[in-house]
Structure formats: C-alpha cells, structure tokens
Nucleic acid binder design. Structure first.
Lengths: 146, 146
DNA sequence: TACAATGCTGAGTAGTTTAGTCGTGAATCG
DNA sequence: CGATTCACGACTAAACTACTCAGCATTGTA
C-alpha cells in the first residue's frame, strides 16, 4: 500500500520550484542537491511533470524548470495521479470501473475510503505544502535560538 | 497503492468461513472452489490467519478450518493488517514512527488519510461483509425472477 | 495397524515493479 | 564553436507478487 518514491520525490521537487517561483528557471541539479534526490532519477519525474503541463523547461546555460501555474492552483491529487497513475487501492474501485458494476467483497468499503482520500488530496495545494514547510523551518529556528 | 491479493483473498476466505460457521470444519478445497481462489496459495494465507488467531484448524479426515470468534468481532482492519502488514501509505506515517518526529513534505496529509482509513476499516466486521454479500445475492435473485 | 484424508511448511520460480544509472543527442547562450 | 543545460531511451539490480510443488505431520476410519 505504499506510495512509491515517484510521488514523494515529485512533490518535493514541485515544492522546491514553488519556493523559487519568480526567480527564473531552477536547475535540476539544484533541486536534487537541496532536496537530496538522485538527479538522474529526478530527470524522469520532471519529464513526466512537463508532459502533463505542471512545469515548463528551458535548455542551455541559465535554463531549468519553472511552474506553469501558481502553486495555489496545483493540487496534491493532480500531481500524485500524474506520477503514480491511479491511486485506487483495488482495481475494481478505480474510477473507470465504477459504472454500476457490483463492488464485491470488501471493495465497497475501499470505494468509500478512496473517494474520501481523493477529496482530501484535492483540497491540498502545493502552496499549502510550502507554507507548512516554512512554518516547520521557523519552529526549528526558534528551537535553536532558545 | 494497490492492496495485494493476500488481503483480498484472505477476507474472501473469512467471509466463506463466517457463512459456514457452526457447520464444523470447512476444508481448504471447498473455500478455494467456492471463492475461485488458487488452493495452494490460500494455504499460506490460512496459515497466517491461524498464526494470528483468526482461525483454528484440525487435520485428518473431516478436518478443516473454523473461525475462532464470532464474525461480528473480527474487523476488516485486523484481518488486512494480519495479511498485508502495515497499510501505511508512507513509511514515516506508520504508527511506530509517529513519536513527535517531523512529518515532512506531504506526509502530514497522508497521516490524516491513514488515520481515517484505519478508523473506517476498524468499523467494518466480517459479519457485515457477509450481510452485504447476502443482500447482493438477494438482489441478483430478484432480478432473475422478474 | 494400515491408509487415506487433511493440514503444515519451506523451497523454488516466473513475471512484474521499483528505483534507479548511463550514454547520447538536442537546444541554447555567449 | 564550446560549454551548459534539458530530453529521451536503453539498460539493470534488487525486491516483490503470486503463485506451485514436494514432502512431512496429524488424525479418523476400517
């Protein structure tokens, strides 16, 4: 039932891009270094995010990656579904298979859980994750200063 | 994010045992046939369920498997955690790792989802799944009789 | 006591997925 | 042109999934 590292790393990368929004293109290597991610793997994740329109990239010196939209408009759900595919816990529970067909055994329970989960993930934006991280940093800093 | 077949099959097997509770031991081969599960695989799942005290078994002719407790007392959560291990969507979100340590990035969202999910699964019993299946069977039968 | 029916256990395995690396090529800036 | 950056596809080691199978242990019946 674990989320793969794709979703985890990809969201971390977008948080990084959101934090540096408006400062021009951010390079892969900087994201990888700051977030402690393997750069050549991050490569593939950024490619997927670009294909799905979350980021745009420019090549050449001074090139890099940027968000295409404000972080407030990017939901956690959309990013995870981009990188992980469907988050459905059982195949018969995925959106496509919900056309009146019987949800057998325990699957009706999982269908409810899945719907709640998606609603929850759709209600959180990258901007909120950035804000959460900033608060966390302030808490750490306050601890040190005591 | 998919549940494995272990949890799925195991719950199906327990539903079968619950339906035949009070009729003496139920044989592996009967469960496998009725629920369309590979018998030699079901073998391992029943072994795990026995180790964790969900079923007891008797060998020899006339032997088989039985629930150790009423189906009303067996929650879906306990069965799934027996067969799947932790259902946590991220390692840092698992129960063991929740001692005040920082839930970084998106993990605080998943921690909330995880808690809700476990509460939901803990509120459903095998008895309810049996009842749900019976209702479904009645609906099918009614359709045929029209 | 023999034997047949049943469960128990661990080894093995083919296929898939995960989490990457690496090399080459393409675009761009100076 | 040459340095810098992204783009893309091939490749891979390790782990996991979903099994099968052989052989042993236990028990009821004749």
């Amino acid at each position: 039932m674990l989320l793969s590292t794709k979703g985890d790393y990809g969201v971390r990368a977008l948080i990084d891009l959101a934090k540096h929004a408006g400062e021009g293109p951010v390079q892969r290597s900087d994201i990888a270094r700051r977030r402690q991610l393997p750069e050549s793997y991050l490569d593939h994740l950024l490619a997927q995010l670009r294909r799905d329109g979350f980021v745009r990239s420019t090549r050449g010196p001074g090139g890099g990656h940027e968000l295409t939209r404000p972080a407030e408009e990017i939901t956690l759900l959309s990013v995870l579904e981009c990188l992980e595919g469907s988050l459905a816990p059982m195949v018969c529970v995925a959106d496509a298979n919900r056309g009146g067909e019987s949800l057998c055994g325990q699957s009706w329970v999982w269908a409810e859980i899945y719907d709640d989960m998606r609603a929850r993930l759709a209600a959180v934006t990258i901007a909120e994750l950035v804000e959460h991280e900033r608060q966390h940093e302030r808490a750490i800093a306050a601890n040190y200063s005591i």
